[in-house]
């Protein structure tokens, strides 16, 4: 424990720049349907090589505006009611990486400021002096730089940033697929309650007016 604290301290002294680098990046996540669908394609095609999204089913993807043929293309022979499991069996991943890659269904809710965390992680890879790939947000991460961010030049990074943004949008949706339904119902509920409370207020005033002055 002490040793680790000491090594962090040395890291800080050696590279003050990491202070700024490991902060979450200020980014606006594009939640448009197109971005969500493109993110879903990346996640099912790339991330799900190792990661599962077991609380999502292929049928859930239909809600993003995909048609059944699109989903069949992404599901690799799985049925609509099957959960989104990793293509690599968990025990194989464990042998390769030393642990089972975490399920991504709830990642956007399981971290403080989840979406920005995911985006910052995906675009936080860099090559240290010895040529090893590491991550600013998660030093010592075992996940490879799957998007190739660390080796990309500025123009490539613009495209990768968009892709990371789409992946983030999809994972945020996956963690809370009912969010749109919840908010749109919420507007009606609040509007109704404001109306009802307004009526109750006038009614209360009228009732108490019977007492004449001295009422509160």
């Amino acid at each position: 424990m002490k040793l680790r604290a000491l090594s962090y301290l040395m890291l800080l002294l050696a590279a003050p720049a990491t202070w700024a680098d490991n902060a979450l990046k200020d980014v606006v996540i594009d939640q448009s349907p197109t971005a969500l669908r493109r993110g879903a394609a990346t996640v099912t095609g790339v991330c799900m090589a190792c990661h599962s999204l077991k609380y999502l089913h292929y049928r859930d993807l239909l809600k993003l505006g995909f048609n059944p043929e699109d989903v069949a293309g992404m599901s690799m022979g799985n049925k609509l009611e099957d959960p989104l499991l990793a293509m690599t069996p968990p025990d194989v991943s464990e042998q390769t990486y030393g642990r089972v890659p975490p399920d991504l269904s709830l990642l956007a809710k399981a971290r403080e400021d989840g979406p920005r965390y995911i985006y910052s992680l995906l675009t936080g890879f860099y090559q240290d002096k010895s040529g090893e790939t590491n991550n600013h947000l998660y030093p010592g991460i075992r996940m490879p730089d799957i998007l190739g961010w660390s080796g990309a030049d500025a123009s490539q990074r613009a495209a990768l940033a968009t892709q990371a943004n789409e992946v983030t949008a999809f994972l945020a949706w996956a963690a809370d697929p009912r969010a749109d339904e919840r908010r749109s119902l919420g507007y009606y509920v609040i509007a109704y309650l404001v109306l009802l409370t307004g009526l109750l207020y006038v009614l209360k005033r009228r009732v108490w007016a019977r007492l004449g002055q001295g009422s509160n």
Binding site: Y192, L195, L196, L199, L200, R206, V207
Partner: peptide
């Protein structure tokens, strides 16, 4: 007149409230 207004208000509020409870 006041009494009548209050009755109307009570009916209106009661109706809105009942709809909300049902929903």
């Amino acid at each position: 007149v006041d009494e009548e207004r209050r009755d109307f208000l009570l009916t209106a509020t009661g109706t809105v409230g009942a709809v909300g409870i049902a929903a």
